[in-house]
Write a protein that binds this DNA or RNA. Structure first.
Length: 463
RNA sequence: GGCGCCGUAGCCAAGUGGUAAGGCAGCGGACUGCAAAUCCGUUAUUCGGCGGUUCGAAUCCGCCCGGCGCCUCCA
């Protein structure tokens, strides 16, 4: 399996440090507001990666953190006149609701920064002892010059960074590029005791400390949105590798952004769209299909119309599930005609998670299944073959988190079946008025009935 | 200024040296009391433009045009 590594800017073979096991860490969100559709892309992309790695036979340990202490959280807390913790807890709960609504699997661990302050302090102490960090008035900075490889992930060199620095230079720092590991508390700010006085951790140190705590000093995949490449991941590498002297992560994986029109989606531009709003409008699977319809590293432009289209495409697939469910046949052996799709699907996925191509295979598969169905499911063998094919489609789609509802077991409720039978009888009498009344009654019970050459077909309305 | 990405049918989007996947929309047909869906067929002699390399280029190289991201808030 090949995965694009931001560090080397090329696709590399995934060779787990522990054979058969993949340990991955993805930077989560800062919890000071509702998560938006850009976060949804990150969530769906890394959920897809974790799911596919498991599908491919790896044991996966996935860790995603919460940044629950930072300037924005404090500012928000001050605005509302509540403790910072109340803000972070509120939006952690909201985030978890969104993850659930998106159909993303929860990671093995979701550590919060504030639960790991002692580890961070210990890490900072070791950096100071190793002369990679220094203390100034209760603040601690990482000395970038002490770690020559700084810039290796983002492809920057130290001189350029000096020229391009656009932040106000803090005169207390030895070098403008040095970054904070520990920030001394200002009056009224939440703080933790430390050897340097009360304060709180800098942004970057939390991920180093938590990744090491849950995954060890070296692990396989570290990811996040592409905006984290610099400075966040660059700084994580510096502060971690300066101590461990070994590669922090083997592969660096970054997902592309979702733009609003031609602009990036961001709080400061006021053009964000909340995950819950999108799920309400289009459904989680349509959103996932739309997102996976573009390669994860490419830019995506938000469009309600495109997501709506994805919903229509999705119904081509879910319809097959309904048909299989209505048959109620036990799956038989997979017919030869359906045997080749898994290989094409995995070949696409094994090439840096090429979900657009993999989806193309799924749609080819769905056409083959439709053709099989429309040739007539008149024999038990034909029915068992069809059900086996649909089950295979569900298995493959599930590898990227689609068609999670599976083939729903059991027939529609007896009442619905009775009404359908009555309607079929009415149609036999050419009693169209009664037929339409019955269709309306069936609709009331949540089912849609369609007339096909092979008889009535039931679909869960809105399903 | 530095680093990097992108430009493929009406729209979205794979393909990165061997002769253009897939989705949406459209068109023709089958089916049909109506409706909807489904199925079949069909829609790029061509991949922003101009040169070059090659037996062969959407894919490699050069230049140009257009869009975008990052350069210490950011998924």
């Amino acid at each position: 399996m090949k995965i694009y590594n931001t560090m080397t800017r090329s696709k590399e073979e995934l060779v787990p440090l522990v054979p058969g096991e993949v340990r991955m860490y993805s930077c989560g969100v800062t919890v000071y507001d509702l998560s938006h559709v850009g976060h949804a892309r990150m969530l769906i992309v890394f959920d897809m990666i974790a799911r596919y790695l498991r599908f491919a036979g790896y044991r996966v340990t996935f860790v995603r953190n919460f940044t629950d202490i930072d300037d924005k959280i404090i500012r928000r807390a001050n605005q509302e006149g509540v403790p910072a913790r109340e803000i972070s807890e509120r939006y952690i709960a909201a985030f978890r609701e969104d993850v659930l609504a998106l159909g993303a699997l929860p990671p093995e661990a979701e550590p919060k920064a504030t639960d790991h302050v002692p580890e961070m302090i210990g890490h900072i102490e070791r950096l100071i002892a190793a002369r990679h960090a220094y203390v100034v008035d209760g603040d601690v900075y990482f000395e970038v010059r002490s770690f020559p490889p700084y810039g290796k992930l983002s492809g920057k060199n130290l001189e350029e960074l000096l020229v391009g620095a656009r932040v106000e230079v803090d005169e207390r720092k030895r070098d403008p590029r040095d970054f904070a590991l520990w920030k001394s508390a200002k009056p009224g700010e939440p703080s933790w005791p430390s050897p340097w006085g009360p304060g709180r951790p800098g942004w970057h140190i939390e991920c180093s400390a938590m990744a090491m705590r849950y995954l060890g000093e070296s692990f396989d995949i570290h990811g996040g949105g592409e905006d984290l490449i610099f400075p966040h991941h660059e700084c994580e590498i510096a502060q971690t590798e300066a101590l461990t002297r070994k590669p922090f992560a083997r592969l660096w994986v970054h997902n592309g952004f979702i733009n609003m029109g031609k602009e990036k989606m961001s709080k400061s531009l006021g053009n964000t769209l909340a995950i819950r709003e999108v799920v309400k409008r289009h459904g989680a699977e349509a959103l996932r299909l739309w997102i996976l319809g573009t390669h994860y590293r490419h830019l995506l432009e938000w469009s309600d119309e495109r997501v709506e289209e994805a919903g229509r495409a999705l119904s081509r697939l879910t319809r097959l599930l309904d048909d299989a469910a209505a048959l109620g046949a036990a799956p038989g052996t997979l017919p030869d005609a359906f045997a080749g799709f898994a290989g094409r699907f995995t070949a696409a996925m094994n090439d840096d998670f090429n979900t657009p191509q993999a989806l193309g295979v799924l749609f080819d598969f769905s056409r083959a299944l439709s053709e099989h169905r429309d040739r007539g499911l008149t024999t038990p063998a034909a029915r068992a073959g069809f059900t086996a094919g649909v089950a295979e489609l569900v298995r493959l789609a599930g590898a990227i988190g689609l068609l999670q509802r599976g083939i729903e077991a059991g027939a529609p409720p007896a009442e619905v079946e009775r009404l359908v039978a009555e309607r079929t009888a009415a149609r036999g009498r050419r009693d169209w008025k009664r037929s339409d009344e019955l269709r309306a009654a069936i609709q009331q019970l949540g089912w849609a009935v369609e007339d096909t050459a092979n008889g009535p077909r039931l679909t869960r309305a809105g399903g």
